[in-house]
Design a protein around this nucleic acid. Structure first.
Length: 433
RNA sequence: GGAGAGGUGGCUGAGCGGUUGAAAGCGGCUUCCUGCUAAGAAGUUAUGGGGCCUUAAAGCUCCAUCGAGGGUUCGAAUCCCUCCCUCUCCGCCA
């Protein structure tokens, strides 16, 4: 949510920033409603003040045993007026809020111009030397996964629906090894491990910006008014909502493993095969709550922390800075990490590291007491995947493919996987299934 | 799921229709005292919003908020209704 005061005091600057995202974005309608609301608010407050005074008079008069019928009658009509004005004001406030909640964050100046993903900027590539490790004609991860008997797409669909799959045997084990490896790496690096609820309420979903605009993308439990989380960002960022922390508690760095649930509305036909786009997938998330002045440095640090996982796994990747047309609703600046997928010869997103300035903090009520001013101030929130686990597994199946029957286990993962087993093989997988 | 109790400021806890934004205690902060510490004294200490003033900060003032939302009333932390949450007992259960 944008700061209504900023909109009030400098609507042009806000509009200018928003128009970088989309030419038709504007806060003008909000400004108009705000002016109306303020006017009604002032009248309401004036009348309330008057009523409070009269109420005191009544109390005084009663104490002295005087008659109060007349003034009571007067106060009654006053109360009716207050109610009417309040109602008007509420209506306008609601309209204003509805509009405000659908306005995306203002991009930071650093975020490059551009309309869509084609205008994103490649910042760097890493690990070219690890491309073409073994096999020249790499099978896609879903084929080698099927051959090895560790990915079962058909049965996943049978018991659930499309875009659900089953991992089994060494596949399931590899997924678990990756989760532990990532969590351990991040916690050793100063992040606190969090295991949050996977179902959250509407308020939390609104706080991070998934609602109200993107409700169709969410799985929802209607009877309980709860939503399956699309990312651990939601429960973890909301953790301190409504509290005022002391400045020395910041920065707070948290990491969480959760499954993530997305309806993928509107992506029919996209990435229909394999693990790339599933309704349910595992992800390790990194979340930071920071002082505004630390926000850029912490954002870059978080990005480096996510990159580190790929470096340790020796998977080639590149870092892309998203343009204004491609960053998410709540984000002000965003880097994607894309891992090399040799079967298709493309880089695929495996992490998205965003800074939200105070946009989420304002919605959630994430504050800290500034030591300089002694007053509460909004924090900045930052998050990123560290990493998407299924996609990491897919990348391993391709980048570490020895031949069409065997996949090597990355060195960094071996202590997490079957006591140092070095390969996935058809024989071994069959034994286990 | 059934029965009961309860949700008040950073914490403990009073208030149960009329200067109560809220007693008291603890904690925090500031100043004084003290060779240092301890002890002591005084003051101060919620959040959000509006207006005035100001370059700004500060300041002044008003409004709202005692789990959330509605209602009764001239007036609600206090009475009524709905919802949420916590605790205790019973039942069920990984």
């Amino acid at each position: 949510m944008l700061d209504i005061r900023l909109i009030r005091e400098n609507p042009e600057a806000v509009n200018q920033a928003l128009k970088r995202r989309k030419p038709d974005l504007s806060v003008d309608a909000i400004s108009r409603l705000d002016a109306q609301r303020l006017e009604l608010l002032q009248e309401e407050e004036m009348l309330r003040g008057k009523r409070n005074q009269m109420t005191q008079q009544i109390a005084q008069a009663k104490k002295e045993g005087r008659d109060t019928d007349a003034i009571q009658q007067e106060t009654r009509t006053l109360a009716e007026r207050i109610k009417a004005i309040e109602q008007q004001k509420e209506e306008i406030a609601e309209q204003q809020n509805a509009l405000l909640m659908e306005i995306p964050n203002m991009p930071l100046p650093q975020t490059p111009d551009g309309a869509d993903e084609n205008d994103n900027v490649v910042l760097r590539t890493w690990g070219d030397e690890f491309k073409n490790r073994y096999c020249a004609d790499v099978l896609p991860h879903y084929d080698i996964g099927a051959t090895l008997g560790i990915l079962d797409f058909d049965r996943g669909v049978k018991i659930s629906q499309s875009r659900f799959s089953v991992m089994r045997g060494e596949g399931s084990r590899l997924e678990r090894a990756l989760i532990n490896f990532m969590l351990d790496t991040h916690t050793e690096n100063g992040y606190e491990e969090i295991l949050p609820p996977f179902l959250v309420n509407r308020q939390a979903m609104t706080g991070t910006g998934q609602l109200p605009k993107f409700e169709v993308d969410m799985f929802r439990c209607k009877d309980d008014e709860l939503f399956l989380i699309p990312t651990a960002e939601v429960p973890v960022t909301n953790l301190y909502g409504g509290e005022i922390l002391s400045e020395d508690q910041l920065p707070i760095s948290m990491t969480a493993y959760t499954p993530c649930f997305r309806r993928e509305a509107g992506s029919a036909g996209k990435d229909t095969r394999g693990l790339i786009r599933q309704h349910q997938f595992d992800k390790i998330e990194l979340v930071k709550l920071v002082r505004p002045e630390d926000s850029e440095a912490e954002h870059l640090k978080l990005l480096a922390d996510a990159e580190r996982i790929l470096q340790l796994l020796e998977l080639p990747y590149r870092v892309v800075e998203l343009c204004v047309g491609d960053i998410g609703f709540s984000a002000a600046r965003c880097f994607d990490i894309e891992v090399w997928m040799p079967a298709q010869g493309v880089y695929r997103e495996i992490s998205s590291c965003s800074t939200f300035t105070d946009f989420q903090a304002r919605r959630i009520g994430l504050k800290y007491r500034s030591e300089a001013t002694g007053k509460p101030a909004f924090m900045h929130t930052i998050n990123g995947s560290g990493l998407a686990v299924g996609r990491t597994l897919a990348a391993i199946l391709e980048n570490y493919q020895i031949n069409h029957q065997e996949v090597e286990i990355p060195l960094a993962l071996r202590s997490y996987f079957r006591n140092g087993a070095t390969q996935l093989t058809v024989a071994r997988s069959k034994e286990l299934v």
